[in-house]
Design a protein around this nucleic acid. Sequence first.
DNA 1: GATGAATGAGCCTTCATTCAT
DNA 2: AATGAATGAAGGCTCATTCAT
Lengths: 203, 203, 203, 203
Amino acid sequence: MRNIIAENTEQMFILVITDKRIRILIAAETLINQSGLEAVSIHRVAKQAKVATGTIYLYFKDKDELMAELHDRNLRLFAEAFLSGVENAQSLQERHRRLWLNALHYHQENVNVQRLWVHLETLPKNAHHKALIQELFEPVKLFFRSGVEQGCFKPLPSEMLYALAFGQILEICRFSYLREVKFTKQDMDAALLASWDAITVHP
Amino acid sequence: MRNIIAENTEQMFILVITDKRIRILIAAETLINQSGLEAVSIHRVAKQAKVATGTIYLYFKDKDELMAELHDRNLRLFAEAFLSGVENAQSLQERHRRLWLNALHYHQENVNVQRLWVHLETLPKNAHHKALIQELFEPVKLFFRSGVEQGCFKPLPSEMLYALAFGQILEICRFSYLREVKFTKQDMDAALLASWDAITVHP
Amino acid sequence: MRNIIAENTEQMFILVITDKRIRILIAAETLINQSGLEAVSIHRVAKQAKVATGTIYLYFKDKDELMAELHDRNLRLFAEAFLSGVENAQSLQERHRRLWLNALHYHQENVNVQRLWVHLETLPKNAHHKALIQELFEPVKLFFRSGVEQGCFKPLPSEMLYALAFGQILEICRFSYLREVKFTKQDMDAALLASWDAITVHP
Amino acid sequence: MRNIIAENTEQMFILVITDKRIRILIAAETLINQSGLEAVSIHRVAKQAKVATGTIYLYFKDKDELMAELHDRNLRLFAEAFLSGVENAQSLQERHRRLWLNALHYHQENVNVQRLWVHLETLPKNAHHKALIQELFEPVKLFFRSGVEQGCFKPLPSEMLYALAFGQILEICRFSYLREVKFTKQDMDAALLASWDAITVHP
DNA sequence: GATGAATGAGCCTTCATTCAT
DNA sequence: AATGAATGAAGGCTCATTCAT
C-alpha cells in the first residue's frame, strides 16, 4: 500500500490511487477547497474518499493528526510550486522574480489553503513539523544568504528577508479575493519590483 | 444601562462594565485569545461573561452576528491603534514610521486576532461592513494618495501600496510567534526601512 | 378594566380594546391563525398584543391557563356562530339547516381552530370548563330533545344526535382544505340532507 | 438487520424487534399515546427506544421525517384495521357495517392518534404521501362507487360519502373519551344505522 | 399595575470516536 | 485490513417564567 501504482506496467495510461492514506488526504483537501474548513468532518471525508469511517482511524490517530498531515502535504506542495523553475544558475533577480510569481499564483489558486494554515499554525507543533519546514525551505534560505553575501540583499536574517520579499503577496490576494479590488498587470509588475526594492541594498 | 460606570466615585480605581453587550464581546475576545477560535461556544462565552446562555441572544441575533460584531470591534480597535499619533502635519516618512510600528505592536499583542480575521473574512460581507472598512481606513488611503501626488510613492492604487508597506508585518509576527525566530531591534528597524523602500520611487 | 369601552360616550365611533386580557387572547388567536399553534410563544403573544412579557402573567397564571381561556373564548365564539339565527319558532328542519350551515361556515373560516381544540381537548379539564360547555350548548341539547319528543328524531342521547348531525362537517372541511377536494354547491346541499337523514326516523 | 426475529425458534413466544427504525417509530408512538404529542422529543424517543440520540439520525433525516414516517405508518395501520374482514363478496350493508365498526374500534383504542394526524395534516404534503393515501383507501373508494352505481348510495363523490358515513365516529369517540359521555350498545347500533341512513337513497 | 432583561432547562442536530463483525 | 452502526457529549438556539425596577 501507500503508493501510487500504474495499473498498466507497460504503458502508464491509468493512474489509480490505491493508497487509502493519500485518498483520504485528497478527500479532505477537496472538501476544504469546495466548502471551507468547517465542512471537514470525518464522516464527510470518509464519504468523499469512498472509504468507511473507521478506516480513517487506521491511517490517522485522530482528526488532529489527519489535519496535521494535511498541513504537511500542503507545505510540500507549496514548496514545490514555490521553487519550481528556480535554478542556482539564474541571477538573483531572476530567481526572486520566479519565486515571487510562483508564490502569487499558488495563493491565487488555493485561497482556502490559507485558512487551513492559519488554523493549523496555532496548534502545538511537533519537532517533525519544524524539521520539515527547515528542510523544504532550505533552498530559499540559501538563496537569501547568497544574496546577502554578494552584498546585493540587505544584511538581515533570511526569515526577515522572506517576510519582506513575500509578505505582501497574501495581502494582495486578500484584497483581490475578499474585497474585490482589481489590480492590473502593471500593478503586479510594480509590486514585484517593490518586493525587490524591499530586500536589496540602496545606495 | 449600557454604560461603563466607575465603582468608586472619588477616584476611578475600579471600572465595572455594566453593558452586557460589551461584556459579551470581551468575553468572546478573551476566549479567542486564550484558547483560539474553536473555544468560542455560546455556552463558554456566556460563562466567561457571567451571563446566562439565553442572555447572549438578547444582544445578538445569533452566533454569526456576535462574531461579525467582534470583527467590527476589532477592526475599530485596530484602526485606532494603527492611526494613533499620526498627524497630517508630519512628514510622509514620519507617518509611515508610526503606522508601521503601530501595526507591528498591535499584531504582536493580538496574535489570535489574525485567526478571527481570517475566519471572518470568508463569511459573506454585508454592505455595512464594507462601508466600515472604507471609513476606518480612509486616512490611510489619503496618506498613500498624497504620497503618490508628491511623487514620493510609486504611482499605484492605495490598496497595493498598503500591501507593500504593511504586508510583511503579519509574516514577521508569524515568524517570531509561531516559529520562535528572534529578531533584533536592528532587524526591525531595517524592516521598517525596507517597507519604505518598497513603496517609494527610486532613481 | 376587563371591558370594552367606547372612547366617546355620546356616539360610538371608535371602539378601543383597553382590556389587556382580551388583547392578549386576541393576539394569541391571531398568531394561531397566521402561523399555527407552535408559533404561539409568550414572547410573541406579548409582542403581538403590544404588552410586556411579564404583563401576560398578571392576567394568566401560566401558558396553560392562557390556552385554556383561549379555548373558552373560542367555544363561546363558536357557540354564538353556531346558534346564530336559530329560533325556537322555526321548524325542526329549518333549525337543523341553520345549525349545520353555521357550523360549516365557521369551520371553513377557522381552519386552525381545529388544531387548537384537538390540542386543548386532551389537557385535563376543570369543572368550570365542563359547565361552560353544558351551558353554551344547552339550546342545541334542547333542540335535539324536542325533536326526539316530537317523534321526528331517533330516540338517542343528544350527544349522539349531535355527532350524527354535525360530525361530517369537520371531515368535509378537512377534505376540501387539506386534500384539495372540491365539492359543488349541490354536494353540500346533499350533505345537509344526509345529515337530516341520519338523525330522523325513517318508516 | 431490519427484521423481526423470534427469540425462541421452537415456538414464537417472544418477539424482539431488532429493527431500530421500527423500534424508534414505536417508541415515538408510545410517547404520543402516553403523554401526548408534545412529549415527543428526540431525546425522549431515544430513551424510550433504548437507543442513543444520534442513532435516530441514522434512520431519519430529522424530526420532521420521523413524524412523517409515523404518519405513514399510522395511516397504513389504520387502513389495515379499517378494511379488515371486508370482502367484495359481502353485501353493501355488511361491508358498511364492518368498515364502520372497524373505524370505531380503531379510534377507541388509539385516541391520541387523532392528535398526531391533525398535527401532521397541516404540514406540507409531499407527492408520496398523497399517493399513499390514494392507494390505501382505493378499496373504500371502489366500495362507495359501486354503491352509487347500484343506485343504493346517494350520487355523491366518494370523499363526501366517506365524510357522511364515518365523520361521526371521531365525534362519538371524543364524547366518550373527553367528556365521559357513556353510550350504550343500542346507541352504537343506532349510530351505525344512522350512518347507513345518511349515505343511502331514500324514497 | 406594568415592564422587559435575565434566566437556565430543554430542544434539535452534528460530530469524533469506538467496536463488533 | 476494513467496515459502518452506534454512541453520547457538545453545539446553537428557544422558551416559559421570574423579578427588580
